[in-house]
Amino acid sequence: MLITINGRGMEVALDPRTSLLDLLREHLELHGTKKGCDQGACGACTVLADGERILSCMALAVQYEGRSISTVEGLARDGTLHPLQQAFIDHDGFQCGYCTPGQICSAIGMAAEIARGVPSAVTPDLAAITILPTRDELRERMSGNLCRCGAHNGIIDAITEICTTEAAA
């Protein structure tokens, strides 16, 4: 089947059991996307499918035929870090680094959801057209990405910087 990974079309032959995560890690040697639980409970495997954040561990790769997948490896451009990657460094938004690619991909997908006006469980007014990226909004929306080192404050700081910069731009 044909699938696009980080802008490159790839032809892969797969066992239908193979998850999108294992396709990336074991077949394409793209190890940036992490396996933390393989049960949809930690968010370490988050990738973007046509711009939407999903859990690649719960995704059978065959279901994503013809789709465009972006992983952490596709974020930097011409050797320059994505602004969010740089913000994670600046705010020390990680320690061991294992949940980090998932946090970053999730945050990119999440920022698009906010920009689109998708509400969250803590959005006070469901009818609101514009969602403000408050810390609680970001915390709720990032709660599907576990971090065990306890870098939560730095992660939210980094995302806040990006969301407010983008909102201002």
């Binding site: 939407e52 719960m58 969250s120 959005t123």
Partner: peptide, 16 residues
């Protein structure tokens, strides 16, 4: 209904 869905799972899972 919107509140119930948003109370469930995570952003990634709700997208899938």
């Amino acid at each position: 209904l919107a509140r119930a869905i948003l109370a469930g799972a995570s952003g990634q899972i709700r997208n899938m």
